[in-house]
C-alpha cells in the first residue's frame, strides 16, 4: 500500500498539532516515524488511519482518501498500550482480525479459521492459542497483534511505539519478525519510535516530525548522521560504528 500526503494538517480546537505535512511513502516500505515527544507522531498515525479529522489531502494507492478506515482498507493499528481484554483467548483475539472478512449473520467459516491458524503458526503462537491474552508476556502480546494483522490480511501496519516497554532482546525479536513478515507479505509498515539504533538495519524510509511539521521524508540512511539527529532532538549526540559498520547513536550529557 502506498500512502502519500499533501499539506495534511490536524487541529484540536485552536491548537494545531500537525502543520501541513507532505510526504510520499512507497508501497512495501518499512517507515521509521521519528520525532521528539509531542511532535505529532501518534496524531499522524491516527490521521492516516482515519480516526481523526484532518485538512489537506491524503492519498492511498494514488486515490484521494479520508483515512484508511473510511474506505474499509485492510490495515492494522497497534496502539501504544495494547488492549488485553479480560477473558479473551488468543484465538478469539486473532479472530477479531477476520471481522471484515466474515459474514455478519453466518459468523466465521472454514477459511476464517484457516487464516487464524496460519497466522498463529507464522508467529509461533499455535501452542498458546487457547491461552487468555491477559496471561501472555509483552513479547507474545506483540506477536499476537502481528498475527491478528496477518489474519486480517492487512496491507499496511500502523504501529505506535510498539517496542517502548520491551527489553533489548524482545525489541530485536519483534522488529526482526516484523521485517520478515513485511518481505513475505509485502505490506507497508509505519512505526512511530524513538529507537533509531534497533531500526537502522531494517527501516528503509524515514519520516521525521518536529513540532508538528515535517523535517524530513525520504531514505532512512540519510538521517543516520549526527548533525541531523542533534538538530532534531536538540542535544549533543555521540556516534559509534559497530563491527559491521552500522552507526549507533547516543545522547550525551555534554551540553548540560
Amino acid at each position: 500500500m502506498q500512502v502519500a500526503a499533501e499539506k495534511l494538517s490536524v487541529n484540536f480546537g485552536k491548537k494545531s498539532i500537525l502543520k501541513g505535512l507532505s510526504f510520499r511513502i512507497p508501497s512495501g516500505s518499512f517507515v521509521a516515524l521519528l520525532g521528539p515527544n509531542g511532535s505529532g507522531k501518534s496524531t499522524l498515525l491516527k490521521a492516516v488511519a482515519g480516526f481523526i479529522n484532518f485538512t489537506g489531502c491524503l492519498y492511498v494507492n494514488s486515490a484521494r482518501s479520508r483515512g484508511l478506515t473510511t474506505e474499509k482498507k485492510l490495515f492494522s493499528y497497534v496502539p501504544q498500550n495494547l488492549s488485553q481484554p479480560a477473558g479473551m483467548t488468543l484465538c478469539e483475539y486473532v479472530m477479531l482480525g477476520r471481522t471484515s472478512h466474515s459474514n455478519w449473520f453466518l459468523g466465521e467459516r472454514e477459511k476464517d479459521y484457516a487464516a487464524v491458524a496460519n497466522a498463529l503458526d507464522a508467529l509461533k503462537l499455535s501452542s498458546s492459542s487457547n491461552q487468555l491474552v491477559t496471561t501472555l508476556s509483552g513479547g507474545e502480546m506483540q506477536r499476537a497483534t502481528l498475527a491478528r494483522a496477518l489474519a486480517q490480511e492487512a496491507t499496511c501496519l500502523l504501529l505506535d511505539e510498539p517496542t517502548a516497554s520491551m527489553d533489548f532482546a524482545r525489541v530485536i525479536e519483534v522488529i526482526n519478525i516484523l521485517d520478515e513478515l513485511r518481505s513475505r507479505y509485502k505490506f507497508t509498515v509505519v512505526m512511530a519510535t524513538h529507537d533509531i539504533n534497533s531500526l537502522s538495519r531494517y527501516a528503509d524510509f524515514g519520516l521525521v516530525l518536529k513540532d508538528g511539521s515535517s523535517l524530513y521524508s525520504g531514505k532512512f540512511s540519510a538521517i543516520m548522521n549526527r548533525d541531523f539527529l542533534e538538530n532534531l532532538y536538540d542535544t549533543k549526540i555521540e556516534c559509534v560504528k559497530n563491527k559491521k559498520g552500522y552507526p549507533l547513536f547516543f545522547a550525551t550529557a555534554d551540553n548540560l
Partner: peptide
C-alpha cells in the same frame, strides 16, 4: 445479539475496533 460481534470488538480500544472493521 447481532451486535455481539461489535461488542467483542469494543473490548479493544475504540481505535483498534475501527481498524479491525468495526
Amino acid at each position: 445479539f447481532m451486535y455481539g460481534r461489535e461488542l467483542d470488538l469494543l473490548r479493544m480500544s475504540e481505535d483498534e475496533s475501527k481498524a479491525l472493521g468495526g
